[in-house]
């Protein structure tokens, strides 16, 4: 699954650490999601969507 996390983060000038802090997860988690090494659970995906104020399908895209 692809995602637009890096772009959305860049638009807000957030580091991975900033995003991790806002999501209350480790920076490694953000890095793993961004690079496609790990697909988040549905609850975490909803938290990410809520944080960016976007629907999930605008952040996570089918391959």
């Amino acid at each position: 699954m692809r995602n637009r996390l890096k772009v959305l983060r860049a638009e807000r000038d957030w580091s991975q650490g900033d995003l991790a802090e806002r999501l209350e997860v480790s920076r490694q988690s953000v890095n793993a999601i961004e690079t496609g090494k790990y697909d988040p659970s549905l609850p975490l995906a909803f938290r990410i969507a809520d944080l960016f104020g976007l629907p999930i399908e605008d952040i996570f895209l089918k391959d």
């Binding site: 480790s26 793993a32 790990y38």
Partner: peptide, 8 residues
């Protein structure tokens, strides 16, 4: 552990 990636 609340961090799902670290747990996995």
């Amino acid at each position: 552990e609340t961090d799902e990636y670290l747990k996995m």
